[in-house]
């Protein structure tokens, strides 16, 4: 079942990537990133099963924690941007230019 799990993981990750590339809504893009993280988690679990070691699961825990932190901060930023632009459209977020 490992290869199937890796297959699912790859498909989900790719869907996340395509989502990031096609959507313009910042929140949706954010959720796509979460999907990619989940896909990677699936890989971790599958490979942890493959090797018969729980270390992969530990890393999944770390990924989840970081994802939670990232979600908190990211959503706070989105709220700030929304207050500024009255929109979460990606086309408005162009302040990265030096």
């Amino acid at each position: 079942m490992i290869s199937e799990a890796l297959f699912f993981s790859a498909v989900l990750f790719t869907i996340g990537v395509v989502g990031v590339l096609t959507r313009r809504n910042a929140i949706i893009i954010f959720m796509c990133v979460e999907l990619m993280l989940n896909a990677v988690n699936l890989s971790f679990i599958a490979l942890s099963r493959l090797h018969g070691s729980a270390n992969g699961q530990v890393f999944v825990l770390f990924v989840m924690t970081i994802a939670a932190a990232e979600a908190a901060v990211g959503l706070a930023i989105i709220i700030s941007i929304f207050r500024h632009h009255k929109s979460v459209d990606l086309r408005n977020i162009n302040l990265l230019k030096g």
Binding site: V17, V20, L21, R24, I29, L90, R91, I93, N94, L95, L96, K97, G98
Partner: peptide, 17 residues
């Protein structure tokens, strides 16, 4: 390339990956 457009950066990251 440094357009400041976040979307463009996302594309760059994807192609780099």
């Amino acid at each position: 390339l440094q357009s400041g457009e976040t979307g463009a950066y996302a594309w760059a990251i994807a192609i780099g990956a």
